[in-house]
Nucleic acid binder design. Structure first.
Lengths: 266, 266
DNA sequence: CGACCTTTTGATAGTAGTCAAATGAAGTGG
DNA sequence: CCACTTCATTTGACTACTATCAAAAGGTCG
């Protein structure tokens, strides 16, 4: 399967059409099937870890601190259910939501390098998180290479994800950034086989704004504008539940930055 | 060394003083010694990889493409020297510098998850990069756990680094963001035992601005203001070389956001 | 030298931040 | 059960930071 081609360096201006499109297009064929399979992959990964490692199962409620910056690194955590926010604290006191985690995601990779966690991981909903001793995981990985693969893929995904966040913050105006946040949340649910037409935000406007690099007022206004444009609707219950009639409309809005698909009223 | 404490979950509002300070303070003791040791660690890591794996050594010049988004993932790359920028391309064409890499850093982690790289890595100066087949690395890691550790630490550092970038972009105003960029560059050089009083920017204002989420004009103005405040100086040669009289002054500026230490002229 | 790119700086516009007030939601205790 | 406190959210008015547009100066390389 792996070609044995030696790495070939592309000199400046030779990079023209070397396959950069193949990788991007693979997702869009059968959305349903892709979701099912990624949901299944997550389930398989959890089952594998559960079998090989007997992780300690922790029930968490909103607000619980799963691991804390500065704390000694012993365990990685694998989410079986629930939602978690990752918070980074700079030495001069700035606080920043730097990530959101869902079922199948791992927590605590940042602790490997310095033997201390560098972020807080805080549950924003009830759920179950599995604690896995890193040394035990390493040991098991030597016997079961598939485990090691799992671990590396999770770390790789996290790196790619963080870059997407940075791109979003750096390139999109406020409204599109909020739209992209909702899209990301909906996609994350979809990958895990959950409903995406209605999503319950587990974060305050202030937390969302912090994550997206804007103020809570700007988040509120952006949501109001998205609602006025028909891209989202607020559930009758409260403004914390958001309906997304069609995620693709959000996507085109993020890309275009323009008014919704057909220039609606106003 | 490792305590065998089972993970203890902190319930909401119980997290008060659970060691979150210990981790932050460890860096500041003897700066010289820390730099030497981290420089030595990098050298050791390179030597270890070189011994275990016989990597293919690639000479690169500014502009060379080391790996490209969409390309099949075979190799990780370890930088022996030079400087590299990482560029992410969104499906709708936005282009974003999402990282900078120095000696001892690895490239290509983002490719593990999907078997394709998701970013371009482009040299911005001459240097030497080692290509290491991922399958060979995995195999060697099973025999030499210290190699596996090296790999995991590198990935962990990258994750922590990306979060710092996000925090900087989200929480700092433009001038401080540029200052933080210079500080980061200087720190990166210092960790590798290189001179930090004068640094040669290998990126245009446009690239820096893209990386920091601002326009090239804003970068230029920020640099001018930093120079006027005495926090940096331009080398007589050209405005591409920047002198940093004292990095700590930059640090306090980033934290305070205020005018330089003593309220100077103007 | 001349074409081209990068950088600087100014003038102006626009987006997002700040301040403030009002409404809404949720929980506490009388 | 309702009054009362508290926190989250919305919206408006105004400010300020950064983007945009434009022109000129500085560098680089054939």
């Amino acid at each position: 399967m792996l070609t044995t081609a030696t790495p070939i360096l592309l000199r400046k201006n030779e990079a023209a059409n070397a396959g950069s499109l193949q990788g991007q297009a693979q997702h869009r064929n059968s959305e349903q099937r892709a979701q099912l399979s990624s949901s299944q992959q997550i389930a398989d990964a959890l089952a594998l870890v559960s079998d090989c490692l007997v992780p300690q199962r922790l029930m968490v409620r909103a607000g619980d601190v799963i691991c804390q910056a500065g704390q000694r690194f012993d365990c990685l955590y694998l989410m079986n259910s629930g939602f978690v926010k990752i918070i980074s604290l700079s030495c001069d006191g700035r606080e920043q939501v730097v990530g959101l985690k869902f079922r199948g995601d791992w927590l605590g990779f940042d602790g490997i390098a310095n033997q201390r966690y560098s972020c807080d991981a805080i549950a924003i909903d009830t759920g179950e998180v599995w604690a896995i001793r890193y040394d035990a995981l390493l040991e098991a990985s030597l016997r079961r290479p598939v485990l090691l693969n799992l671990l590396h893929q999770a770390m790789s995904r996290e790196i790619a994800n963080d870059r997407d966040s940075l791109m979003s913050v750096c390139t999109l105006p406020a409204d599109a950034r909020v739209a992209d946040f909702l899209r990301y949340w909906a996609d994350s649910l979809a990958k895990r086989g959950l409903r995406t037409d209605q999503i319950k935000l587990r974060m305050t406007r202030a937390e969302i704004g912090n994550y997206l690099g804007m103020t809570l007022e700007t988040v509120s206004r952006a949501l109001s504008r998205l609602a006025k444009a028909g891209l989202i609707e607020f559930a009758e219950g409260g403004r914390r539940d958001i309906l997304i009639p069609e995620v693709d409309a959000l996507r085109t809005f993020i890309q275009g930055g323009m008014t919704p698909a057909p220039a609606l009223l106003q």
